[in-house]
Simulated assay, not measured.
Amino acid sequence: MRVVLADDHDLVRSGIKALLQMVPGVEVIAEARNGRELVTLVEDLQPDVVMTDISMPEMDGISAIGEIHSRHPGVRMLVLSMYDTVDFVKRAVAHGACGYLMKDAPPFELEQAIRSVMATGSYFSPAIAQRLLQPSEPTADDELTHRQVEILKLIAQGRASKEIAFELGLSPKTVDVHRARIMERLQLNDIASLTLYAVRKGLVKP
């Protein structure tokens, strides 16, 4: 099983790689520090499995999963994350993930997860499976349009309207209109509240 591993923390990635190298028949063929790099590596190397974190710079793990799934539906994608809320899991699955594993899982579960996604097409740890049975609150994708989610991420990163407009190819006035609509839809009144919302939904790192 050829695996591409993605996590923006070098130490975490090294630890996961070391554990995977102890699993017979598993080879880590490449590593990525962000979602954009992950998409490129998968395009070039065509691995069997992608194991990725969610919160990464440049492109988050869920966006990367969605892009990879649309181009390479046969690649199995396993999320390895510290986020265990139902909306994170459901967003990952909706974008194409076939498994979800917590970073605090015991080491043996890593082998169990990767073998399961290859053999049966899915793996969800017992804790995650139990959470999936609970009702979930709406995700950012449920509450906002794709463009609004893009703008909200940049607002939460402290970008000014002009910067956001330049990055997304919009006018500053259009960005301001989107921001007003986001605030109205979410019933939030200031940038600090928008930022807290973005962190809670996993759109940006705390």
Rank of each mutant, 00 (worst) to 15 (best):
R185T: 15
Q112K: 13
A113C: 06
D10G: 01
G74T: 12
L186N: 05
V23C: 01
I114Q: 05
K173Q: 12
G61I: 06
H69D: 04
D84A: 13
F124T: 03
K90V: 13
D84E: 14
M183Q: 12
A64M: 03
A180T: 11
N189Q: 09
Q46D: 04
E150N: 11
T52D: 00
A119V: 10
F124V: 02
D8H: 05
G35C: 08
R181H: 09
G169N: 04
Y197I: 12
P138H: 07
E163L: 13
L110N: 04
P73D: 07
S161T: 14
E67D: 08
E58N: 02
D53P: 01
D190K: 12
L45N: 01
T40A: 13
A92H: 02
L38T: 01
A180Y: 07
A64W: 01
N189F: 09
S193L: 08
V49S: 00
V49W: 07
V175C: 01
V75E: 09
G25E: 07
A198S: 12
P106S: 06
L196W: 11
E137M: 13
T40H: 13
R147W: 05
L168N: 00
T120H: 11
L38G: 00
D84K: 13
S125G: 09
T139S: 15
V49C: 01
K173Y: 12
S63W: 04
R200Y: 11
T195W: 08
R200H: 15
S136Q: 14
D190N: 15
R71G: 03
L5W: 04
V39A: 07
E27K: 15
G66W: 07
S125Y: 04
E67S: 07
L188F: 07
K103G: 09
D104F: 08
S116F: 06
S122V: 00
I155S: 12
H146P: 02
L194G: 07
R115Q: 10
R33L: 11
I128R: 06
T145K: 12
Q21T: 11
S116T: 07
K205H: 15
A160M: 15
M77R: 12
A127Q: 11
D190V: 01
Q134A: 14
K173R: 10
G158I: 14
A97G: 02
R76M: 12
L186S: 03
R76A: 13
R33M: 10
Y100H: 06
L80T: 11
T85S: 14
D60L: 05
D8L: 04
I62K: 01
C98V: 15
P57T: 04
P107N: 08
G169Q: 05
V75L: 08
A18I: 05
M102H: 02
I151Y: 10
R115W: 09
V12H: 03
L101Y: 07
K90L: 15
D84N: 13
T195I: 11
R71N: 10
L144A: 05
K17V: 07
S193K: 13
D53M: 02
A94H: 05
